[in-house]
Amino acid sequence: MTTADTRADRPLAIAIAITTGEPAGVGPELTAAALADARGRWPSARFIVLGDRDLLAQRKLVERDAIDIDIDIDIDIEHHALAAPVEAGTLNAANGRYVLNLLDAAIDGAVDGRFDAIVTAPLQKSTINDAGVPFTGHTEYLAERTHTPRVVMMLAGSSDKPLRVALATTHLPLKDVSAALSIDGLVETLRIIDHDLRAHFGLAAPRILVTGLNPHAGENGYLGREEIDVITPALERARALGIDAPGPYPADTLFQPRYLKDADCVLAMFHDQGLPVLKYATFGEGINVTLGLPIIRTSVDHGTALDLAGTGRADPGSMIAAIDAAVFMAHHKRAV
């Protein structure tokens, strides 16, 4: 590890680790662009960037031993060597384990208390799988590595677009979603959302609107019984635990201002039920937060954008928002 100016006279600084993700993608340059935007933005945070030093130099993040950003913030580089040379936009399975090494180092540092939060740039699932490592996604991997039995994927807009959407199921084929839903599972998911919105976002009494699974929320059983047999009993049990979780609502009409104005989060039943709406409203400014973990993790709301890698045209808005959220959540956790 090579360290830039650590400014040790600020012992209370929040430590944020940033993994630079797929080396052929936009992660390295988004990290650079986001930190370049940091002038006066995060005065009480320091950043530890995890990645290959030469790669970061190529993407204009560092000049060999120091960040090439002339602003008053704390930034360290934690060097992890690439397994193979990288060409922007061209995937190489030889670097699949490099990407996981970055993630493992960030997770270990957060679990050990060295990092207050981690922010993850996008990775390429196919590259990791092609490297011989079964990999479904960041969310599932974080749960496995931290020995967390259940986590919740939540995407959110920026501070001026505060829509939040959490998922009851994540990266599953649509045909498997119904079987993956259970009363106990939904209750636990709602408990995690309620707890983390209180603990990390400072919401005293979160209100979580819950969608149905089927069109028209099942139409009283004529279009499916999941609402009757699973979702409604789960909501009744959650409300008995003090969780404000009305529903199930038809997903095609729920995402309207008159319903969302008093809501803190929407719980959707599957990935492409809730996320297209959120990404339409907030794309490029939204973030991904993993709830239920013993650590704080935020991420961008998009993929590796291989077509933009190395061009300097990738928009850092989502990375900036992810760092904003990580700093906010870490400060809130430290204060309570």
Rank of each mutant, 00 (worst) to 15 (best):
P134I: 12
A110N: 07
L61C: 15
S159T: 03
T169Y: 01
Q58E: 13
G157A: 03
D54I: 02
N129M: 10
I75W: 04
V86E: 05
L163H: 04
I183F: 02
A180Q: 13
V177Q: 02
D74V: 12
L100Y: 09
N95G: 09
Y141M: 11
T120P: 02
N95V: 01
D176V: 12
I77Q: 03
G132A: 08
Q58V: 06
V99D: 01
G113A: 11
R64Y: 04
L123E: 00
N92L: 03
V86I: 14
I75C: 13
R59V: 06
V86G: 12
D112Q: 13
V111S: 02
L172M: 12
A131V: 03
A117M: 08
G96W: 05
H171G: 10
V111R: 13
A156M: 12
V165F: 10
A84S: 12
M154T: 04
A81E: 15
A156W: 00
A57S: 07
A93T: 05
H79C: 09
E140S: 09
L103H: 05
L56C: 10
G137P: 09
R114Y: 03
D68H: 11
A81V: 13
H138Y: 02
D184W: 03
A66I: 03
R97T: 11
D72T: 09
T127M: 14
S126M: 14
L50I: 12
L172Y: 03
Q58M: 12
E78W: 11
S159V: 03
A83T: 06
K175D: 07
V165S: 06
T170E: 03
I118G: 01
R64H: 14
A168F: 11
F135R: 06
H147P: 00
P122D: 08
E63H: 13
D70T: 09
D54R: 14
P122I: 04
T120F: 04
G51N: 07
D72N: 14
G113K: 04
A105N: 13
R53Y: 09
L103Y: 00
D130P: 01
M154K: 08
R164L: 06
D176Q: 14
S182Q: 05
D54Y: 05
H138C: 01
G51E: 13
T139K: 07
L56E: 06
G109K: 07
K175A: 07
R164G: 07
I71T: 15
L163T: 05
D72A: 15
R59Q: 10
L91K: 12
A66M: 04
E188I: 03
D184L: 06
D65V: 11
G113E: 08
Q58A: 13
I67Y: 14
R164I: 01
I118A: 15
A179E: 07
T136F: 00
L186W: 13
G109D: 04
L142R: 11
M153P: 09
S158E: 10
A105R: 15
P122T: 10
G137N: 11
D160P: 01
A180F: 06
V151P: 00
R97V: 14
D184I: 01
E144F: 07
T146I: 07
P122N: 00
R164D: 02
D68Y: 00
S126D: 12
H147G: 08
V187N: 01
G137H: 10
A81H: 12
S159G: 09
H80T: 12
T127S: 15
V152M: 05
A66S: 11
R114N: 11
L163S: 09
I183W: 01
E78C: 09
L55Q: 08
P173K: 10
P134A: 13
D54Q: 15
I71N: 10
I128S: 02
